[in-house]
Design a binder for these strands. Structure first.
Length: 478
RNA sequence: CGGGGCAUGGCGAAGCUUGGUAUCGCGCUUGGUUCGGGUCCAAGAGGCCGGGGGUUCGAAUCCCCCUGCUCCGACCA
């Protein structure tokens, strides 16, 4: 099963990966275009994936002491300008509100591209003592960046995300928390989304404007391009100084706290699509799939079939699964193709012959594997199969990642490997911006990250030949 | 922002070169039929041809401007 293509409306990914991606987004009814470039309608099936991501991730945040808040959508220009690097980075893509009703505003307001400045303004108000720290806030919201080009889920002008902002008494604690949140993201990607990640640090060129250090999780898509799936930043006390945020420490000294911020966005959904999807459409990780199990009655007009299917659905709902029963009069073939296109992880088939035998058939979306199960063991079997779907998806994605990390010792070799294979090319690196720019110019790759798991490949930088102690991953990114 | 392609019922397309008021497939509605991998038949509904301006007796078709989509660059936590 699932050997040949069933849904001809979807372009094969081998033919045109970008078109395949767009087709999946539209045909699976995740998203629709609006009349404004880069602003998309999240349809119920697409938004439900985000809701599931939110629900699970929000629990993880709360486990590490994070509280949710909500900040205003508008940032006065004067506030945005308080931190120099920050405003320089975001100014080119800010959208501005200049009118209130028919009145021109005294000061224009930026529609938040990110909310560091608003959080800082607030932190300055509410932080007095070391007893107020750490302060760990997060908000779920949308932000707006006037991007020149846009693609569903990968680059929107308005996109949904969460942004966490925390304040700590010491640099050490803030740094540790920055890494902790990166690990929360990494574990989420792997355990919930079945997306293997590479954890590491961004170069100065690629780091967040205003940050001292940016950490990242990088994923590899099916076309072997890199996707930055989440970032966590250590700010030091730069913003605290710019915004005059201080607290009184145990020694009665007035000092600046140390800060972090971290975020993931609906880009994760783009990652899910491009990591797991195939030529029949979406393949959704069971933990975030809006429909985890679809029950399909076969020959449903025959006595007892629909009732039996309906009963199976009830049992699965009661067991806590997200279930849909499709009792429409579309043909079996149509239904199979439909739910494959929509990436439903598990299908339960139940027809007259199954019922005679006191069984139903479970079919996995990711590999098409069919398993007949006794009706009385349904709940347990579904649980097991969903787990197998997750494991199968992760293993396949992990293989794709591991098999496409190549090692290079010269600029030319890096270029050849990228052109031939795509994926990540790992080399040593001297740490200079010049060499980073040269790699981009010669091999068309940007630095993805300096992985936490370091290897010594060589003694020298492949770009300049100078001594190099760091290993770095390069790649073509979304 | 530079270069290419595109915009016609919900979706996908034909018509445009050679101007005369729109065609096909899918989907949708109704009835029947079928149902173990996108059933079949019949009857229906639905379009100021992306927006604005111009040429013309007459524009989906020719000209100009705008908007959006898409691909390749550049740019981009």
């Amino acid at each position: 099963m699932a050997k040949e293509k069933k849904v001809e409306q979807i372009t094969d990914m081998e033919v045109d990966f970008a078109q395949w991606f767009t087709d999946v987004c539209k045909k699976a009814q995740l998203i629709d275009y609006s009349s404004i470039k880069g602003m998309f309608v999240y349809r119920p099936y697409g938004y439900a994936i985000w809701e599931n991501i939110q629900n699970i991730m929000d629990k993880e945040f709360k486990k590490v002491g994070v509280e949710n808040v909500y900040m205003p959508m508008l940032i006065p220009e004067s506030l945005l300008q308080k931190e120099k690097d920050h405003v320089e980075g975001f100014a080119p893509e800010c959208a501005w509100v200049t009118m209130g009703g028919s009145e021109k505003l005294e000061e224009r307001y930026c529609i938040r591209p990110t909310s560091e400045t608003l959080f800082c303004e607030h932190f300055a108000q509410v932080i007095q003592s070391h007893r107020d720290l750490p302060m760990k806030y997060n908000q779920w919201c949308s932000v707006l960046r006037w991007e020149k080009t846009s693609r569903p889920f990968l680059r929107h002008r308005e996109f949904l995300w969460q942004e966490g902002h925390t304040m700590h008494a010491t640099a050490q604690e803030a740094k540790a928390f920055t890494e902790q949140m990166l690990n929360v993201y990494a574990d989420f990607c792997e355990n919930v989304l079945a997306m293997p990640v590479t954890r590491g640090q961004k170069t100065d060129k690629e780091k967040f404007n205003g940050a001292e250090a940016t950490y990242t999780i990088e994923c590899m898509m099916h076309d072997r391009k890199a996707l930055q799936a989440g970032t966590s930043h250590y700010f030091g006390d730069g913003f605290a100084k710019a915004f005059d945020i201080t607290f009184t420490d145990q020694n009665n000294q007035r000092v600046n706290p140390h800060q972090t911020s971290w975020g993931v966005s609906t880009r994760l959904i783009g990652g899910i699509i491009m990591t797991h999807g195939d030529n029949n459409g979406l393949v959704l990780p069971p933990k975030v799939a809006p429909i985890q199990v679809v029950v399909l009655p076969i020959a449903q007009h025959k006595a007892g079939v629909l009732e039996a299917a309906s009963g199976l659905k009830e049992r699965l709902v009661n067991a806590g699964f997200r279930v849909k029963l499709d009792d429409s009069d579309n043909s079996m073939g149509w239904k199979c193709a439909e739910y494959e296109m929509k990436g439903v992880p598990l299908r339960v088939e139940c027809g007259p012959r199954d019922l005679e035998n006191g069984q139903c058939v479970l079919v996995r979306r990711n590999d098409g594997e069919k398993t007949a199960v006794k009706l009385e063991q349904l709940e347990q079997a579904v649980q097991e199969q969903l787990e197998l779907v997750h494991q199968g998806m992760f293993a396949k994605a992990k293989k794709n990642l591991d098999e496409h990390i190549y090692e290079a010792h010269s600029l030319e070799e890096a270029k050849d490997l990228q052109e031939k294979n795509g994926g990540f090319v790992k080399t040593m690196w001297c740490g200079s911006l010049e060499c980073e720019l040269k790699m981009k110019e010669v091999a068309g790759m940007s630095s993805r990250c300096i992985p936490f798991d370091q290897e010594k490949l060589d003694d020298k930088c492949p770009c300049c030949g100078k001594p190099a102690s760091k290993m770095i991953y390069w790649g073509v990114a979304y």
